[in-house]
Design a protein around this nucleic acid. Structure first.
Length: 503
DNA sequence: AGTGCAGTTGACTTT
DNA sequence: TAAAGTCAACTGCAC
């Protein structure tokens, strides 16, 4: 009996673990619901809801291929023990997982158990991330090669005599209620629909619209949760994008489309690029990548700052709108993710760990490698990236010029005129609203930014700091972007006015 | 028509 | 994927 252990690869198509296992005999496709994983502080009800929907659909897809998904709940070793006793396992198949520390330790236990029982565990590369990578040189080329390999088809499977098991509810798992009215639905069908509509309809304005929190909701692919939980493979997304690019080229160019898709393929690279950092250095889930920043922020979070930030009650309208929108939709565009994290780390001077966990629980597409790499980058603790302190008022003006986004999510500001919406404390009628329906800002954002900049540069200026930064660059830096200290100039800013979106 | 000048723009630097 | 500051070139306008 070959076990295919599905984790963050909840698909039948382009699932090599499944395809390879099927060449060796009867296959038992297994998902183990691990209650302890779902109790980890980076996991939340919305993740389980997405996974649960995806598992139901996968179960039906697998049933059509011959053997429905088998679901067991409990510690994975106990589950394997039982299955081994009942069915005599020959081999275990799965994809390599670059997860959080909990799944890393669990995988070590699984490896030890397999060794002990003489069961071979075949772990296959899941996307562009390479295990035991020695150097970043040549990484992008390997990525291209991996993504160009043929997509594997769903194997035919012989039905087994085995109880398929049931999916527990969020309540069964003891998950706290996690309301998310506009969460993206799970399941592969939703994923392929998104990919198709993005590549044929929604993607044309991607490059210019992605930075707007409202227009971006429509013009971004939105496949991120599907990549995170594996209902789509990165290879499928890459090949579909390449095919569409060839089609557009053959049709004679539509420059807008082609610019958007060029930029999009770059993002698919970045997806794996960031996960690779956690793969190479798992400690970045917990520790500053550059140790020069150790101790500059209080390690225990100031709840008087963390809580209003997380709830969207800081009194900074654009930041609050972003956090409330995120809570309700499970998604935020890339730029706004960077802004809310930077606000926590710089303006509120919170250590990144607690706000990082808040965001992990709020992103339906939580992908540990991307998340912790980005969290550190946006908090300035990598040592190799430019410090980016966002001005939440300026971002509000730039990315939400009509104020539609803020008005949608912060209705308490209805009485504030458009001209003062991003900084309501400057409005004539401020006293009618602030400190009543809507809070006064919990910090003065200009002086807070200034203070943060001074504190950061006090650390950054030293020789010892630069020496460590150089070795980090050698290990983790993108070869394409080169040395970030030799800053390339940003090109002139385009302020595209965007069509009205839905959120 | 050339000059002086305030205000603007854009490239580049610094934090 | 930032923002603020600096500086020089440029622009429009009055005289």
């Amino acid at each position: 009996m070959q076990i295919v252990w599905l984790k963050r690869d909840l698909r039948l198509h382009d699932n090599r673990a499944l395809a390879r296992a099927a060449q060796h005999g009867d296959v038992l496709p297994l998902y183990v619901v691990e209650p302890e994983l779902w109790r980890q502080p980076d996991h939340a009800g919305r993740h389980w809801a997405f996974v649960s929907e995806s598992l139901s659909e996968l179960r039906a897809d697998l049933a059509r291929a011959g053997q429905p998904l088998v679901v067991r709940t409990g510690d994975v070793i106990d589950v394997f023990e039982q299955l081994h006793a009942d069915h005599t396992l020959k081999a275990l198949w799965s994809h390599e997982e670059t997860g959080n520390d909990w799944t890393f330790q669990r995988d070590k236990r699984v490896a030890a158990w397999c060794r002990d029982k003489g069961i071979v565990w075949h772990e296959l590369q899941n996307h562009g991330v390479q295990r035991r990578l020695r150097t970043r040189d040549g990484w992008a080329k390997s990525w291209d090669q991996f993504m160009a390999e043929p997509i594997t088809k769903a194997p035919a499977m012989r039905p087994l005599q085995i109880d398929p098991g049931t999916l527990p509810s969020a309540r069964d798992l003891g998950l706290a209620p996690d309301p998310c009215d506009f969460r993206q639905p799970g399941g592969r069908q939703a994923g392929t629909d998104l990919l198709n509509t993005f590549l044929t309809e929604r993607g044309e304005t991607n490059r210019t619209a992605m930075s707007s929190p409202l227009a971006g909701a429509h013009a971004c692919s939105r496949i991120s949760p599907h990549l995170a939980w594996g209902t789509l493979s990165v290879r499928e997304a890459a090949q579909a994008t390449w095919a569409r690019q060839r089609e557009l080229k053959a049709q004679g160019c539509n420059t807008k489309w082609r610019a958007s898709l060029r930029s999009y393929t770059g993002r698919l690279h970045w997806h794996c690029h960031f996960i690779q950092k956690l793969e190479d250095e798992p400690r970045i889930e917990f520790e500053n990548l550059h140790r020069g920043y150790d101790g500059i922020r209080p390690s225990a979070p100031d709840q008087e700052r963390l809580t209003p930030w997380a709830r969207g009650e800081t009194g900074l309208p654009f930041v609050d709108a972003c956090m409330r929108s995120l809570r309700a939709t499970g998604w935020l565009n890339f730029r706004m993710r960077a802004m809310v994290m930077a606000t926590a780390s710089y303006h509120l001077w919170l250590d990144w760990r607690a706000p990082g966990l808040e965001l992990a629980r709020l992103f339906t597409d939580y992908e540990p490698g991307i998340h912790w790499s980005q969290t550190q980058m946006q908090s300035g603790t990598t040592g190799i990236n430019t410090i980016r302190i966002y001005n939440p008022v300026k971002q509000g003006h730039d990315q939400d010029p009509t104020g539609a986004f803020v008005r949608r999510w912060v209705p308490e500001l209805a009485a504030i005129p458009d001209a003062h919406l991003q900084e309501p404390w400057t409005a004539e009628n401020a006293r009618d609203v602030l400190g009543k329906a809507y809070p006064n800002p919990i910090i003065d954002h200009l002086s807070a930014a200034k203070q943060a900049r001074q504190r950061i540069w006090a650390v950054r200026g030293t020789d010892a700091f630069r020496a460590q930064a150089n070795s980090i660059q050698a290990k983790h830096g993108s070869r394409k972007s080169g040395n970030p200290n030799r800053g390339r100039r940003p090109t002139a800013k385009k302020q595209a006015q965007l069509s009205l979106p839905l959120d």
